[in-house]
């Protein structure tokens, strides 16, 4: 059976009005109780892409009331045709993982713990560190007297997890600062 998302939508549209398990051929009370309701029924579908490996399987995120309820391969995408591997199949619990970082954290020099901070403080502190280093270290001319405008004492590492638009932002930001030590995991 080739069940595309479109054929399912047609089905689900009908089911929203009248689906009972009896009509689906389920006569037994027990089976009806067991089947329950479909958790993605009526949820909004948003197209996203699996964040692992460059097959870039397209994924449908099912969202209800602003909350993610499930993720599944997009059957219409010609490359993965709805399929996913173990990692792609785990996208939903990756999102709900209790290990997620949710606030900016700060570790002071020689401290043995993380502290929660707000974004405003954090971005100001980082900007301050960058400016101090840049004003002090940027090399305007090299030993041969050539203009080089090179900020060598900081680096940017990452990331291929960034979208194309984010890559464009990061690249422009770094060259604007004068950073040459920039690289990412295309090499690992």
């Amino acid at each position: 059976m080739k069940c595309t998302r479109r054929s399912f939508l047609k089905f689900a549209g009908a089911s929203a009005v009248c689906l009972t398990l009896g009509q689906m051929g389920f006569n037994l009370e027990a089976a009806r109780a067991y089947a329950g309701s479909l958790k993605i029924e009526g949820a909004k579908e948003v197209t996203t892409i699996c964040p692992f490996c460059a097959v870039c399987c397209q994924v449908i995120a099912y969202v209800r009331d602003g909350k993610l309820v499930a993720t599944e391969g997009d059957p219409d995408f010609p490359v993965n045709e709805g399929a996913l591997c173990a990692k792609g199949a785990a996208l939903f619990t990756m999102y709900t993982s209790q290990h997620r970082l949710l606030k900016p954290m700060y570790r002071a020099p020689y401290s043995d713990k993380w502290e929660e901070k707000d974004w405003d403080w954090t971005l100001n502190q980082i900007a301050r560190r960058v400016k101090e280093a840049r004003d002090r270290d940027i090399i305007l001319q090299n030993a041969a007297g050539k203009t080089v405008n090179r900020f060598e004492s900081i680096f940017m590492m990452g990331t291929s997890h960034a979208s194309n638009e984010e890559c464009a932002v990061i690249h422009q930001a770094m060259r604007g600062l004068g950073v040459v030590y920039m690289d990412h995991q295309a090499r690992t």
Partner: peptide, 8 residues
């Protein structure tokens, strides 16, 4: 002196 290590 410092560095950004993002998503790696």
């Amino acid at each position: 002196k410092g560095g950004f290590i993002f998503g790696v």
